[in-house]
Design a protein around this nucleic acid. Structure first.
Length: 804
DNA sequence: GTTTCATTCCAA
DNA sequence: TGGAATGAAACT
């Protein structure tokens, strides 16, 4: 086994296959599948993944592997196979599949450098180059370009005075801290202690410390614990009693946190009923997909926790996926509290280094539970006993860049391999999942009642058009306003929800209707009050607010739409006594601020929590008795077939924040389209009826779950090019697919231009098209060249969630 | 006849 | 993806 099959780090069609390399004798046996290695590829060196070992190759002239990058494989055999599966299912490159499964820290960084050839003195170089090589024998390629000395370099490279080398670097270093280790045994330490001068009492203390705790300790901790200075320690190091050593430590974002240990709570009858089949499946090593459909506050989390308990008792591991925005401290607390050190947490708030360290805890099997966002589904466990996906309907489980996978599909694929259950939990399951449960593909488990049988909050829908007619032009209906005042008096808490951050959404001239658009994208700019600027959320373009209309020179400029910031201002005006905490991307961007704000709210330091999406989930505070949704329909009119579903889900989730404990809750939903079924049915909290209705709509319009979707988006700077290519692709697909497939296009994307690139698309609706995947591959092959050279972009998404 | 630029091909 | 080889156009 001295030949390795390697997938190289070149994301391109032609290199999307394994290349064979010889393993140098010194590495035979230590280079294993799943490891990262450095290999020569053409003239340079790059990273690769070993996918297989073999004795023979079809190629005669094999190059040798330069060096391994890992001591142990970073991908297990199962993950290697999963990578192939990902590439096949999402039409991505294998290398992209592998990289998606690993923390970003493990992705290679490349550096091109120039070094003086061996035995060459800098003075031998041309005068221009000498200063660059006097101090050091190497120079970064980028610097050489910046100094405009490239041609000089090339000349000297031809003379063999300078070599060009390629370095593959690690992105993140393992964190190392100075530790102190006793160099002697306990017995020897006791003897040494006696020898120490009585005046050096501190030194004796240190030795005593190691007699009682004979293992390495971080220098800083030692110093602070014994209240000594580093001199004391270095004196002992001098005497060869102790030793200093750099030891690797984990960056643990939760290390200073105490988590109160919790114990399994007695389950309600309903919970027992649903947990039984899950535990059965765990114990029997059977693969099933369960859809746990439980209303908000029905105690799904406790079902998760106790299922995991069963898994751990079997000596297996658990993966829990939660949407990024609900990966709140509260959520983490519940898992850490129950399983303590056995839990690793992965989410986007961690630095690359922290993520890497959490990941390594998993790799080394130091933990057996992972709680994390989408990518945690790839946790490198080798003995998975359950995969739980909370808030199953959340769209954030779909990755919107390559590889465009859905965590639910990956979870099911992995669970099949490990013969273990998948639990999809939600109060408002996605139509796809619920339909599958109805078809008995998934097993449906229902928790129809809240814990302690509290009733769901009473919901009232307010027609804002009536408010307008009766002269109320504020953003609070009179009903909501009265209720807010009432709660303030009663010292109860209020949550106000608005799914738009910032101030106003767009700015329009009142006289001529002119709306300021982004010059690079075909979309209106968003007003941000803090900087008095208008920004484009797609390309980042910024400009100042015009004082007069650029079109008709009118000065009547109106700000439309309402953002959290504006609501906060207004609250300050009409209810100056109310203490408000605002939570949106702007106020929670700094690390830990999210937690701080929630903590303050919990401690009653504010009466009103005002926020965007991020407050819709997971909040569980006893004192919240009123939830107000300021504008329920902002999402409703987006060009997206899921907008009704999303609206229903969001409204239901937000409503679920109220009255989860003793105090009953009330919900006020303000809307301009009260008669829309998703608003109306969210009001009556009737998922089943919503499901029926929406399924009908989907059926008539031929959308999922009745049809599969695939979306091809073509972008280029020139409109003509985009149109012709989209036309060709559409035509080709029509010729390849059956008559049952519906090929829509070419049409301009809902956002027809982003960042000066025109966007066209082709949407395919189909039930069964075995040729589709192949046809798409051929298309990607066909345009591969143009995509590399002329800036053409073609993205293919099998099962898209965003149709823009 | 030489240089320069763009395009295509290749990598084990 | 980066680079080398190839071929065509521009330049002396």
């Amino acid at each position: 086994m001295n030949i390795a099959s390697v997938i190289v780090d070149v994301p391109a069609r032609q290199t999307d296959k394994s290349f064979d390399y010889l393993i140098p004798d010194e590495y035979i046996g230590s280079i294993l599948p799943g490891m990262r290695i450095i290999v020569p590829f053409g003239p340079r060196k790059i990273q690769g993944f070993v996918v297989d070992l073999k004795d023979e190759s079809d190629f005669s002239k094999l190059k040798e592997i330069s060096e391994p990058m890992d001591l142990y494989p970073v991908l297990t055999k199962e993950l290697l196979e999963l990578g192939d599966w990902l590439a096949e299912k999402t039409l991505c490159y294998k290398i992209s599949g592998f990289q998606a499964m690993l923390p970003a820290a493990l992705k290679a960084k490349y550096e091109k450098k120039l070094i003086l050839a061996e035995n060459v003195d800098p003075l031998q170089l041309s005068l221009i180059l000498q200063p660059f090589f006097i101090d050091s024998r190497e120079l970064k390629w980028d610097e050489a370009i910046n100094h405009g000395i490239l041609s000089e370099i090339q000349r000297e490279a031809a003379n063999k005075l300078i070599d060009v080398i390629y370095e593959v670097k690690e992105r993140v270093r393992k964190k190392k801290l100075k530790h102190i280790i006793p160099e002697l045994s306990i017995e020897e330490l006791i003897i040494e202690k006696e020898k120490i001068n009585t005046r050096a009492g501190k030194q004796k203390d240190v030795i005593d410390f190691f007699i009682h705790r004979h293992k390495p300790i971080e220098l800083r901790t030692l110093l602070s614990e014994l209240k000594i200075s580093s001199q004391t320690v270095s004196a002992l190091v001098e005497k060869k009693i102790l030793m200093e050593k750099e030891l690797e430590v984990y960056r643990d974002p939760y290390q200073d946190r105490q988590f109160k240990q919790t114990y399994p709570l007695p389950l309600t009858e309903g919970q027992q009923k649903v947990i039984h089949p899950i535990q059965q499946s765990i114990l029997m090593d059977e693969h099933h997909v369960f859809l746990l459909y439980g209303v908000t506050g029905s105690g799904k989390t406790e079902v998760y926790l106790q299922s995991i308990q069963t898994v751990l008792e079997k000596g297996k591991e658990a993966i829990v996926l939660v949407p990024e925005i609900s990966l709140t401290p509260q959520m983490v607390h519940r898992f850490k509290g129950r399983f303590g050190d056995k839990v690793a947490v992965l989410h986007s708030g961690l630095s690359a280094g922290e993520k890497y360290d959490e990941w390594r805890k998993i790799q080394r099997k130091e933990v057996s539970v992972v709680v994390g966002a989408r990518s945690a589904v790839f946790a490198p466990f080798e003995n998975i006993g359950i995969i739980i996906i909370d808030e199953e309907h959340e769209t954030s489980y779909k990755q919107e860049e390559n590889p465009r996978y859905h965590a639910r599909d990956v979870a099911i694929q992995r669970a099949e391999h490990f013969q273990c259950p998948v639990v999809l939990g939600s109060a408002t399951p996605s139509l796809e999942s619920f339909a599958r449960a109805n078809k008995k593909v998934y097993q449906l488990l229902s928790l129809p009642n809240r814990m302690n049988n509290q009733s769901l909050p009473a919901v009232e829908i307010i027609d804002m058009r009536d408010e307008l007619r009766s002269g109320n032009r504020s953003m609070f209906s009179s009903v909501l306003f009265e209720k807010i005042k009432d709660r303030l008096e009663k010292k109860q808490q209020i949550v106000l929800f608005l799914n738009k951050r910032g101030h106003s959404s767009f700015i329009m001239c009142r006289d001529c209707g002119y709306v300021v658009n982004c010059p690079h994208c075909e979309i209106s700019l968003t007003y941000h009050q803090s900087q008095q600027k208008m920004k484009c959320h797609y390309c980042g373009h910024e400009e100042y607010v015009p004082k007069q209309c650029p079109e008709c020179k009118s000065e009547h400029i109106r700000y439309f739409g309402t953002g959290t910031q504006k609501v906060e201002e207004e609250l300050g005006k009409v209810l100056p006594e109310a203490r408000v905490i605002r939570m949106d991307v702007d106020t929670t961007s700094r690390k830990g601020s999210h937690e701080k704000l929630l903590d303050a709210f919990q401690k009653g330091k504010a009466d009103i929590l005002l926020g965007t999406q991020m407050i819709a989930k997971g909040l569980d505070f006893p004192n919240i008795t009123l939830v107000g949704v300021l504008t329920a329909d902002t999402m409703l009119h987006l060009p997206d077939f899921r907008s009704s579903e999303k609206t229903f889900q969001l409204l239901t989730q937000v409503s679920g924040r109220a009255g989860r404990h003793e105090l009953p809750g009330e919900v006020i939903i303000q809307t301009y389209s009260p008669e829309h079924y998703s608003v109306e049915l969210a009001g009556s909290q009737d998922y089943d009826q919503f499901y029926q209705y929406e399924m009908m709509v989907r059926k008539t319009h031929r959308y999922p779950p009745f049809y599969y979707l695939s979306l091809i988006t073509i972008t280029h700077e020139e409109l003509m090019k985009v149109v012709t290519i989209t036309e060709k692709i559409t035509k080709y697909l029509r010729s390849k697919l059956s008559n049952n497939a519906i090929v829509l296009g070419p049409v301009a994307s809902p956002i027809p231009k982003i960042n000066n690139r025109y966007r066209y698309q082709c949407l395919i609706k189909y039930k069964k098209e075995p040729e589709l995947s192949n046809a798409l591959k051929i298309i990607l092959d066909q345009y591969q060249q143009e995509m590399a050279s002329s800036g053409l972009q073609i993205t293919v998404d099998l099962n898209p969630y965003i149709l823009m």
